Amino acid sequence: MPAVDKPRAKRRSMPEVSDIHMLNFATRKVPLVFKQNKRAQRIILRLDHGNSSIIVVLPKRTSRDEGKRFALSNKDWIEQHLDQLHEPVPFLHNNIIPILGTPHRISHKPNARGVVWCESEEIHVAGHEEHVSRRVQDWLKVEAKREIEARAYAKAEVVGKKIKKITIRDTKSRWGSCTSEGELAFSWRLIFAPKHVMDYVIAHEVAHLREMNHGPKFWKLCGEICRNMDSARRWLETHGTDLYRYGRF
């Protein structure tokens, strides 16, 4: 088994690289992205769920050719984990994406007036074809913010705390966060998750407004404001990485 690092709560940024090698398998191609890390002691393979690629971390004075040979020597291991690198689902005409867990079809309406609207489990997008992806993503972020804010403020009122600010981001390492100042942040990709999963993530962060820890009191409070906490946690563990596939090309 190759050396593989585990997901961290916070990832350090690495220099951009221009060399991307495609690794061919029977059913698909997977990008190998090479990144230098002076602190690395050995070559490391990492699954990048957000971009459906394999990151090859290269220590100092290690060439990309060496990294490529290392990846090829562990091709069997990569193939065993391909199911974790979901095929991207771009925001394009006729593609299906979940909204709060319910499948919706993207329907391009080039001659329609307006921008984006949803009805009968279809996301209608007006305008030129080249604007469809961006308009769908912008609309999804607005919907995510609306859904998250409504639930977060309601739960904060239940626990007797005030939220200072809510920020919607595109994070890869966590679904939500809470600061001691009462500022909450959430991934807009929660809009794809079932309602009870989004509800749990929001409850988790709101509970931190009273308990800035993961002790027994925290989990008791979290369970009080989220009835399906356990099932939601299991869903995230099993399907969470799937939420990164939507909108990728």
Rank of each mutant, 00 (worst) to 15 (best):
G50M: 11
P59Y: 05
N94Q: 14
T171V: 10
R248P: 03
D5M: 10
I43Y: 09
C118K: 09
G240F: 00
T27Q: 06
I99W: 00
F34Y: 00
M1N: 06
N74W: 10
S53V: 02
I44P: 02
A185H: 05
G50Y: 09
I99E: 00
A232E: 00
T241L: 02
L47H: 08
P59F: 03
H124I: 09
D170N: 15
R234V: 03
H104S: 07
I202N: 05
W139F: 15
A9T: 15
K172I: 03
N51Q: 15
R169P: 14
I163N: 06
P2H: 09
R174H: 11
R233P: 02
G240I: 05
A126N: 14
S231L: 02
R113I: 07
K35N: 11
H124A: 13
R42E: 15
W117K: 12
I106H: 00
E16H: 13
I44K: 00
N24D: 12
P31L: 04
G240A: 02
I54N: 01
P59E: 04
T171A: 14
S52A: 11
L47R: 04
D5T: 12
S107R: 14
D76C: 01
A152M: 07
R248H: 05
K165F: 07
A207M: 05
V125L: 02
Q84K: 14
T171K: 05
K6I: 15
A156P: 10
R134K: 11
I106E: 02
V115G: 11
N95I: 13
E211P: 11
H124S: 07
P88W: 12
K161H: 12
K220G: 03
K35T: 01
K68Q: 14
K38R: 08
R105G: 07
K162Q: 07
N95S: 13
K145N: 12
M229I: 01
A152N: 12
P88R: 11
A9H: 08
K38I: 06
E119H: 09
R69F: 07
E147S: 12
A40I: 08
K109Q: 15
L82I: 02
S180Q: 14
N228Q: 04
K60A: 09
P98N: 11
W235D: 00
R12P: 06
I96P: 10
E157R: 10
G160I: 04
V136Q: 12
R174Y: 04
R12A: 07
T238H: 00
D199W: 01
K164C: 12
H21W: 12
A185W: 04
P216A: 03
S177A: 09
H93P: 06
C222W: 03
L140S: 14
K162V: 07
P98G: 12
D65Y: 06
R174T: 04
E181T: 15
V206P: 02
I123N: 02
S107I: 15
H196R: 02
E87I: 08
Q137L: 13
W77M: 11
F192Q: 06
R248F: 05
V125S: 03
